[in-house]
Design a protein around this nucleic acid. Structure first.
Lengths: 251, 251
DNA sequence: TGCATTCAATTGTACGTACATTTAGGAAGA
DNA sequence: TCTTCCTAAATGTACGTACAATTGAATGCA
């Protein structure tokens, strides 16, 4: 059993990290990753050192630690956290520039699929707010939001041309999304949407789907089709510092 | 000043992180960041807790800690956590199954635009690694990475068909990206790429650009064109608190 | 003055302890 | 059999200590 070299200049946790990484690569831990205490026993180091090693090992997101359960190996999933996107789009939504939008629809509808997405019965009445959003004079995105009527009823008379949905939701309904998830996919828009967005035949767009919850309750399903030609989406960068790099796209 | 609430369910380090982030945003620490011991004194917590808070705070790469000197605020504009998007692609890169890739090119090149993006002189020699990456039997993405030759020279003989770039970079060059940023855009691939990715005329893709840094030094520029038809990219978010994914991870 | 040495300060590493929180599973009782 | 409760196990949080490694400034000497 090749243990750790305490005379090495390499920290113990780094040696342990290397050792664990090697064992991970063999698939030894596919079934079950050792617990902290087992590694403490096996390598004769303190739990602090074990955690330090795992902390570094997990830079790559290989592991997932779950309180009360243990540490499990993160096998490849194709649904993975993007994390930053929310705040990213939020910044556009919140930026003063893009206040303007044209309401395409504000109706009460039933959408079995979307109701199911919100964990509601199929025939649950939903408010549908469909907007064409502008950045300056050019359209930026088509935005559709579904909210259960039980929550959204007070919003049906709102003028959403100049009002942010979440603000109004908080003001009139007393709820504000505090969590949720979002997924993103590329999309070649259909002719109808292409026209609304002033896009050409070969212009791609981004398609975002978002489910928002408040206090654990699903309250909103939203889809957004965003023009991708004029705007780029950058994952978290520091306030005030917009990347000024020149694009280098394969065209 | 009882800034921290010991009865709160929020961990002390999280409260401290929030407090420090607020003070950081005011610019209070632009000249000099407090030492561990000063924060221990000021907030009445142990050094362990202070370090935990700083560790989390530094997810964003705002701080740089230097032994013997102290903690300084990082004014490097583009240093940001790879966090979200990074781990996403990392999961494919790290998973045993989808390791397969075909090397399309491994050359020494000069690319003035990309060199400039990396804050290097225009004629700086760069290694270009171009790969077609597979998930199962189907191609998933076209991946191009540029790394300065001064760093990447040892990699020129590597067989990247079955080797992860970042692992090799760490093993042979002793550096691993620890920060950076990434941006995403939709893209309709050109015929050549369409063929490589087995895409039809109307299939859109995602175009990712990433700059990675290690210890504040730009070390990699990468572009990735990812098929968007088979895979979706999902993010979770949580307003106010740190992203939920972070909570499960020991960093 | 110039140079080398010393020393205090600061972060890194590593050990220890204790308790909280969450989970899974078994025990006990209806 | 089913449900409830309890316990053990696992990770998270938080405290403590000590020493190592590095830096920068102060000190002392030629």
């Amino acid at each position: 059993m090749p243990l750790l070299d305490r005379t090495s200049s390499l920290p113990l946790w780094a040696q342990l990290e290397t050792a664990l990484k090697a064992r991970l690569d063999t698939g030894e831990f596919n079934e079950r990753f050792p617990t902290d205490n087992e590694l403490v026993e096996e390598y004769g180091v303190s739990r602090h050192t074990v955690r330090e090693a795992i902390r570094h090992l997990n830079r790559t997101g290989i592991l997932r630690r779950e309180r009360g359960r243990g540490t499990v190996v993160n096998h490849a999933e194709f649904e993975q956290p993007l994390g930053a996107l929310y705040s990213l789009f939020q910044s556009i939504e919140a930026s003063g520039v893009e206040q303007r939008s044209r309401v395409l629809a504000l109706d009460e509808v039933t959408e079995p699929v979307i109701a199911a997405n919100l964990s509601l019965p199929a025939e649950t009445p939903l408010m549908l707010l469909e907007r064409l959003r502008f950045a300056g004079d050019e359209p930026l995105a088509i935005d559709r939001a579904w909210i259960p009527m039980t929550i959204a009823a007070p919003l049906m008379t709102t003028d959403f041309e100049h009002t942010a949905l979440y603000d109004e939701l908080e003001r009139l309904c007393g709820v504000r999304p505090d969590a949720g998830w979002e997924r993103i996919a590329p999309l070649l828009p259909k002719p109808a949407e292409r026209e609304l967005l002033h896009l050409g035949r070969n212009d791609a767009a981004l398609f975002l789907e978002r489910m928002s919850t408040a206090n654990g309750q699903p309250i909103e399903w939203r889809t957004t089709t965003i023009r991708g030609d004029r705007y780029r989406f950058v994952s978290e960068f520091q306030a005030g510092a917009a990347p000024s790099m020149v694009a280098h796209r394969p065209d």
